[in-house]
């Protein structure tokens, strides 16, 4: 993944504008990254990098088609990630972006959220306590750190540390599944 360069300090107005951009496009950007990489954690990192790039380069944007511009950044970053990690996309590389006619589409295709959460349910079973429950609360139930801390009666910093560790464990399990 590429390095993010130095960034201008955000003024309050800019921060609000960028928060608005995130609200508008975060689902689309994450979905693009996930569809191309097939990896939840890579999609998470790539989404963050996409928006940070948008923040960095927004002043140079010509303002013509904001959505297409942001999607292009997300797509290119995801493709670069796939190339650099030496992965093969599915089903075939060059036809990945070709749209299929309606009659050839898979009706049983799962939604992204459903697919991700089903996968996490399986992965969480492979974690030791308390990380299995922490991961379930954070990734499947999507509770915030503060909510998990309140539920468990521990400090937020403790939960943050555990979430970080759970994330690393899940990431390695995820990687094993991908290569296995």
């Amino acid at each position: 993944m590429e390095k993010i360069g130095t960034m201008v300090t955000l003024s309050k107005d800019r921060e609000e504008k960028f928060a608005g951009l995130i609200d508008t496009y975060e689902k689309l950007v994450f979905s693009i990254c996930y569809k191309i990489t097939g990896d939840y954690f890579a999609a998470e990192d790539l989404s963050q990098e996409t928006f940070l790039s948008v923040f960095q380069k927004y002043d140079t944007f010509d303002g013509v088609n904001e959505k297409a511009w942001i999607c292009r950044i997300a797509t290119n970053k995801s493709i670069d990630y796939m190339r650099s990690s030496g992965r093969r996309s599915t089903p075939t590389e060059d036809v990945f972006f070709e749209t299929l006619p309606d009659e050839k589409k898979n009706p049983e295709k799962k939604m992204i959220e459903q697919e991700i959460k089903e996968r996490f349910r399986e992965l969480c079973k492979g974690l030791k306590p308390p990380y299995d429950e922490i991961a379930e609360d954070y990734y499947i139930k999507e509770l915030s750190v503060a909510e998990i801390a309140k539920k468990r009666g521990v400090g937020t910093k403790t939960i943050q540390t555990r979430v970080y560790r759970a994330r690393n464990m899940l990431r390695s399990l995820y990687g094993k599944e991908e290569s296995g």
């Binding site: 992204i112 915030s144 750190v145």
Partner: peptide, 10 residues
Amino acid sequence: EELYAPRHLK
């Protein structure tokens, strides 16, 4: 499709 992003991403 129904698009998705993790809640904590923003």
